[in-house]
């Protein structure tokens, strides 16, 4: 009877350890950060012009509505912002991913040292791609050309981030 109790206890402990292991493994595939994060990547604001909003999402806001600052960009000018935000592969497994970041609005271009074809402001594009291994991070820079805009205009755009597995 005593032996049976011991064996039952051993089985129970084993099951508990198993559950803990499963829970640990299940949550251990990514690292939670302070930025805008999912299982694969984290979007990290790197400048005063971007921040994590109340919804926990990265927002790029260069207007008087920015909660921290006030201002904007002048007409007929070109602004280059190095490292506006960064994309980090937070997947702790062996996941190597290809990231595509794009914008659509005229006058807005992106660049990143991780994209050989669009690594600087001189070669900026409306779509950039780069590959990140687990733990790697890529800075995203932005070129804003207001030659087609006047004071009072608002440039509104969506920054799209998509992930694929490299072929």
């Amino acid at each position: 009877m005593g032996v049976k109790m011991y064996k039952k206890g051993l089985t129970t402990i084993f099951v508990i350890v198993l559950i803990i292991l499963i829970l640990l493994t299940g949550t251990g595939v990514y690292t939670q950060g302070d930025g805008d994060v999912n299982l694969i990547y984290e979007l990290i604001p790197n400048s005063p012009y971007s921040y994590i909003n109340d919804s926990g999402k990265l927002e790029i806001n260069i207007t008087p509505e920015n909660p921290l600052y006030d201002g904007g960009v002048a007409p007929d000018s070109i602004h280059v912002i190095d490292s506006l935000f960064s994309v980090k592969n937070v997947n702790n497994s062996s996941g190597v991913y290809e990231f595509t970041v794009s914008v659509q609005e005229a006058g807005v271009l992106l660049y990143s040292p991780g994209d050989i074809s669009h690594s600087s402001s001189n070669t900026a594009s409306n779509i950039i791609t780069f590959i990140l291994s687990p733990g790697e991070e890529a800075n995203i820079g932005m070129v804003i050309d207001t030659s087609e805009y006047s004071a009072g205009d608002l440039i509104e755009d969506i920054v799209s981030i998509s992930v694929t597995q490299p072929t």
């Binding site: 790029i60 804003i144 440039i155």
Partner: peptide
Amino acid sequence: AQRNFTVAV
């Protein structure tokens, strides 16, 4: 993901 981007001229 899609994130908002706004610039005031």
